[in-house]
Design a protein around this nucleic acid. Structure first.
Lengths: 104, 104
DNA sequence: TGAACATATCGAATAAATTCGATATGAGGA
DNA sequence: TCCTCATATCGAATTTATTCGATATGTTCA
């Protein structure tokens, strides 16, 4: 079940402020790269790099329409991110009661 | 509401594999630093650095007992992380229907 | 086909994070 | 009080991420 070994990827996608801002922009519906570029004050190649990371994390998906690429929040991807976070922070059933010393 | 500006911090705490492993270890109950250290094959100063980041993110909390420090998953902190992720990936009510072109 | 535009990739510069050993701090017990 | 042990902090080395300009790819339209 070693999910945590490689699943830092999902959270890595979320730990950059530009990428969080992109996510925020996409909450109001899909946008093409050129619109995102106008809002973000970063170089086009930088935006492309961020979109690649977001897409590879699964949280964002894209579709092509002619020469444009539209990005949108993936329902499936964000659901699995939420499940992963819930798992990571959930305390297991069988555990020593708090306050029990595990040190000598 | 500009939460995303500074709230990369919570996710930054989750984007390192050692820190995810620490979280996994704490799922079975609080542990003192020396126990974590045995499991992780990293230097003591490195562990201390990771624990600081995790605690500052709010996801993990600590308590002192004598010379030991015990770390545990914070119910409150992980709840707010989950809320934040849910917000970030939730699509807003009013939005243009998908497929509407926002580019010329 | 060729010009114009949107996006992706490459390579290099800069910035940020991780890691370690050395050392400091602070608590407990002799 | 002094010694020992647990954890934190410091400073430097290394690794990883971000960023940009330049260029490549691929699409549309004349």
């Amino acid at each position: 079940m070693n999910r945590h070994i490689s699943d830092a990827k999902v959270f890595k996608a979320l730990c950059d402020e530009h990428r969080l801002m992109i996510l925020e922009l996409l909450r109001s519906g899909e946008k093409c790269a050129c619109v995102l570029l106008e809002e973000l004050d970063i170089a086009q190649s930088t935006l492309s790099h961020h979109m690649k990371i977001l897409c590879e994390s699964g949280i964002i998906d894209s579709r092509n329409e002619g020469k444009w690429t539209y990005y949108f929040i993936s329902e499936e991807g964000s659901q699995s991110a939420k499940s992963l976070l819930a798992d990571l922070t959930s305390v297991k059933e069988i555990q020593p009661s708090r306050g029990v010393r595990t040190c000598p």
